[in-house]
Design a protein around this nucleic acid. Structure first.
Lengths: 345, 345
DNA sequence: CTGAAAGCGCTAACAA
DNA sequence: TTGTTAGCGCTTTCAG
C-alpha cells in the first residue's frame, strides 16, 4: 500500500569505507571528528564521503546511541507573534548545531491533555524547551517523568533553567513613564488571570502596575484593572468598558501590545485623541507596535529563544550547573501614544 | 563526554512480547493494527503494552522501514504572521496523523544557500512542504533531486501539487471595491519585485491591480506603483513617497496588510483622514487588520497549511493523481479604512 | 591508529 | 494466525 520513499538503495557507510579503503568504524570516527584517526586517513574518508554525497542515516545513529539530536519545543499557540519569535530564535541556534526542532502546539484543552497523557516526545527528543506556559502539578510531573533536560522560556518551572524577563519590573517601568508625564488616574487593561496560559505573566504585570502606583503614592481604585480575554479583541472590549464609565482615566497601561492596539482602535472610533485625551502604553514591542505608534516596553523575544536553545545544547554537551535564571533587560520605547496629562475632554 | 539520556534501559518490544506471551512480530503487528492478528491476541498485547507504558522507538522503525513519519516544512521567514499561520495549520494536521514537523527556516541568503547545498532534510523526512517561495532553477533541481513528494503552499513549482489563492483576482477585488466607491486616482504600494521571496505574489497582485484599473477604463499612470521593501516599514516609506507628490491619489491599494498598516501610520501622522481624504485597502486579513480597522481581502492562511499537509499525507498513503492546484477563495472584508471618494483636502 | 564483531529495537519475509 | 530469522545502518567495545 505504501510506496517506497527511496528507490535506489542510498549510499551507506560501507560504500564510503570501501571507496576510502578502510573499515566502517574508521569512517564513523572520521566523520564525527574523533581524535584517534590519522589526519591522512581522515582526509581520504572525507574525500570519499564527499564524492559519494554520503549522508549518514540519523535513524541508525539514533538507534545505537540513543540520542536523537532533536529537541522538543512546547508552545501554547504556535501562531502568535511572541511564540513564533521564540521558536524562530531557538530554530536558528539548533539548526546550526545540527539539531532538529520538533514543535508541539498544545493550545486548546483537548490537545493539551492529549499531549500530557501520551507525551509524544518520548524517544523523539533529547531535551525540551517550554515556552511561556504555566503547568499544573500533574503536567509538571508528566514533564519531569520524561527525565529529559528542560528549560523554560518566559515561564517558570521550579528547579529548571529559565530565561525570561522581569515582567513586574517591565510593567512598573511602563507605569512610571505615565506617572512622570503627570498622570495619576491610570487604568490597566489586562488578560484574564484565570486563563491557564499567560497566567503568570498577567499576575506579574499587574503586580508591577500596582507597585508603580504605590511608589507614586496613588491609591488603588476599585475597577482600576479591567480583565478581558487576551488579544486585540480583548483590548477593544476592555477599552469600551473603560469608556462607558462616568470618569475616564487619563492614561491606560495595557498588559500586551495586542491588547493596546485593540484599545487604540476603540479610542480612535470614539474620536478620543491619543495622547491628547488619553495616553496609552503597551508591553512587548510587538512587530506591529510601530504601526500604531505605540509607546511600549520592549523585551528581546527572539533572543530568549536563542538563549533557551543554547542552554539546552550546553546541558546536552554535559555541562552541569545549578538552575540558571537568565533575566533579560526590558527597555521603554517611547513613541507617540503617550504624552503629558492634559485637561480632560 | 556526553551524558546518557535514559538511565534505565527502556522497555522494548520484547518486554511487551514476553508479558503478553507472544513473539515480537505479533506485538509489532498488533500495535500497528495489522489485520492478521486475532482480536484476542491483540487485546492481550495492547494490555501488556499499556501496563508497561511501552513507547515504540521511532529510530528503530525508521531504520527498518525507511519511512521517517516526518515531513519538512520550508519557510523563508518562520516568524512572520503568514508563515507561522501556515506552519500552525500544517502542524495541527500532521500531529494528529502521528507525523513530526521539521521546520526549515531559510530566510537570509546564507542559510538559504546552505540549505540547498547540504539539503539537511535528506533521510529525515518523507515529504516536503514548501511555503510561499519562488525557487531558482538550481533550487528546484536540488529539491527535485530529493525524490520526495513535494507540495507548495502559496507558491508555485510546476509539476507539483499546490494550494494557494488567486492573488491576481484578490488584488482586483480590492481595487474594484475602490472603483465602486468612485475612486479613479488609485495608487499601489508594493514590495520589491526583485526580491526573491514573495516575488511571484508581488507580480500577481500588481497584475490584478492593473487589470481592475483597465476594466474601469482608468489609464495607467507612471509612478502609480510604489516599490518598497515588504513590511510595515516599507509601507510607511511608500506612503511618504506618495505624500511627497504634488497630486495625491484618493485611494491606495497596499499589497499586504503589513504595508497597509505602515501606510496608515504615515497618514495619521500627516493628519490626513482615512477614509475622508484617502481610502486604503490591504490584502491578507492579518490578525492586526482589525486593530487598524483596515479594509482588506482575506485569505484562509491557516487552512492552506492544513490542506498542504493533507495532500502530503495522501501522497504518502499511496494516492496518485495529477498535480492538483487547489485555489481557495478570497473575500473582501470591508472595514473603516475605505469610503466614497470626496473632495480633496 | 585501525578493524572485527556485536547489537541498538524494530519490521518483513518466510515457514509453520 | 503466529513465530523464526535476518537484517536496516550505524556506533562501540575490544583486540591487534
Amino acid at each position: 500500500m505504501t510506496t517506497p520513499i527511496v528507490a535506489r538503495r542510498s549510499v551507506s557507510i560501507l560504500d564510503v569505507a570501501r571507496r576510502a579503503g578502510v573499515s566502517a568504524s574508521t569512517v564513523s570516527r572520521s566523520l564525527r571528528g574523533a581524535s584517534n584517526v590519522s589526519a591522512d586517513t581522515r582526509d581520504r574518508v572525507l574525500q570519499a564521503a564527499h564524492e559519494l554525497a554520503y549522508v549518514p542515516s540519523p535513524a541508525a545513529s539514533r538507534l545505537v546511541t540513543g540520542r536523537t539530536h532533536a529537541i522538543g519545543v512546547i508552545v501554547p499557540f504556535a501562531t502568535r507573534w511572541y511564540f513564533s519569535e521564540v521558536v524562530g530564535g531557538a530554530e536558528s541556534v539548533l539548526r546550526v548545531a545540527g539539531y532538529d526542532l520538533l514543535l508541539y502546539n498544545i493550545g486548546d484543552r483537548a490537545s493539551r491533555s492529549h499531549f500530557f497523557q501520551t507525551l509524544p516526545l518520548r524517544r523523539r527528543v533529547d531535551a525540551v524547551l517550554g515556552v511561556a506556559s504555566s503547568f499544573t502539578d500533574a503536567e509538571q510531573q508528566a514533564l519531569t517523568s520524561l527525565g529529559l533536560p528542560l528549560t523554560m522560556v518566559g515561564g517558570r518551572f521550579n528547579g529548571f533553567h529559565r530565561v525570561g524577563i522581569d515582567d513586574e519590573m517591565g510593567a512598573a517601568t511602563a507605569v512610571r513613564h505615565l506617572v512622570r508625564l503627570g498622570h495619576r488616574e491610570i487604568a490597566m487593561i489586562s488578560g484574564d488571570p484565570d486563563d491557564q496560559v499567560g497566567r503568570a505573566t498577567t499576575l506579574a504585570r499587574r503586580a508591577g502596575f500596582r507597585r508603580a502606583l504605590g511608589e507614586a503614592g496613588i491609591d488603588a481604585q476599585p475597577d482600576q484593572v479591567v480583565s478581558e480575554p487576551w488579544g486585540v479583541r480583548g483590548g477593544i472590549h476592555a477599552m469600551e468598558h473603560l469608556l462607558s464609565r462616568a470618569r475616564l482615566p487619563t492614561a491606560v497601561f495595557a498588559e500586551s501590545d495586542e491588547m493596546a492596539l485593540g484599545a487604540l482602535q476603540t479610542l480612535r472610533k470614539t474620536g478620543l485623541d491619543v495622547p491628547g485625551h488619553i495616553s496609552l502604553v503597551g508591553f512587548d514591542d510587538h512587530e506591529m507596535a510601530p504601526a500604531g505608534d505605540l509607546t511600549t516596553v520592549a523585551q528581546p523575544v527572539y533572543r530568549q529563544g536563542e538563549l533557551g536553545a543554547r542552554i539546552l545544547l550546553g546541558l546536552l554537551a554535559g555541562e552541569r550547573s545549578a538552575a540558571t535564571d537568565i533575566v533579560l533587560p526590558t527597555r521603554l520605547v517611547v513613541r507617540g501614544s503617550t504624552g503629558p496629562v492634559q485637561g480632560r475632554p
